[in-house]
Design a binder for these strands. Sequence first.
DNA 1: AAATACAACAACCGCGATCTG
DNA 2: TCAGATCGCGGTTGTTGTATT
Length: 229
Amino acid sequence: MRKPCCDKQDTNKGAWSKQEDQKLIDYIRKHGEGCWRTLPKAAGLLRCGKSCRLRWINYLRPDLKRGNFAEDEEDLIIKLHALLGNRWSLIAGRLPGRTDNEVKNYWNSHLRRKLINMGIDPNNHRLNQTPPRLESSNNVSVSANSSGLKTRQSPRPKSCGGDKDQVSDAGSCLEDEPSRLPDLNLDLTISIPSPSPAKIEKEQKPCSYKHDMLRDSDIATSPALVLFR
DNA sequence: AAATACAACAACCGCGATCTG
DNA sequence: TCAGATCGCGGTTGTTGTATT
């Protein structure tokens, strides 16, 4: 029923070359974002629109910060994840210059493990009954700093699957049993970054997407947040 | 020095939501 | 109102670099 997003025979896949990047940048500078389906052809790229969009959003956008995450960014991600679960675009929307993919990758490769090492279940942000071999102190504070994270431990699972059914409940878990939570210090008074140009544009659209509808209103009224304000 | 294991992250895929004619 | 087109999100996989044995 549903047509593939592009004619796969005629599209490149895999890593982007510098020439391709440049073509995409040039085109978007001239014509702006959007119309991803027709963009590749117009820009002279043998890529599908989806791929172009991803490349632009995650890598080429001029307002991207890139580089290591600061400690306050880590803390914010952890706090927002406790509230929102795996809604990476929402989380990334509150970290200027960061993309959902970047936040997601950072969570899966660093923060998740960090919480586990601290004896905290990264899915629901609760203290585990039986913490795993702790390599550092028993400090339970989520705000612990990120130094010395490079740890070797059991091989990572083939995938992060299994999160699927649990993670989206992170917020509701908080709601359910706040008394069992670790000291999360969910102080979300951290200044809310100004949205990226793309976000601004999106927010100006008459009909916003589901996730945007969740954004400020949901957070503002979230029982979990109210709880920790 | 070579082989292996692991970490990091870029990119792809599938699906649901929304738009549009 | 509805079906197809498009967009955006989250999960997953593939590739590359680095550390360890």
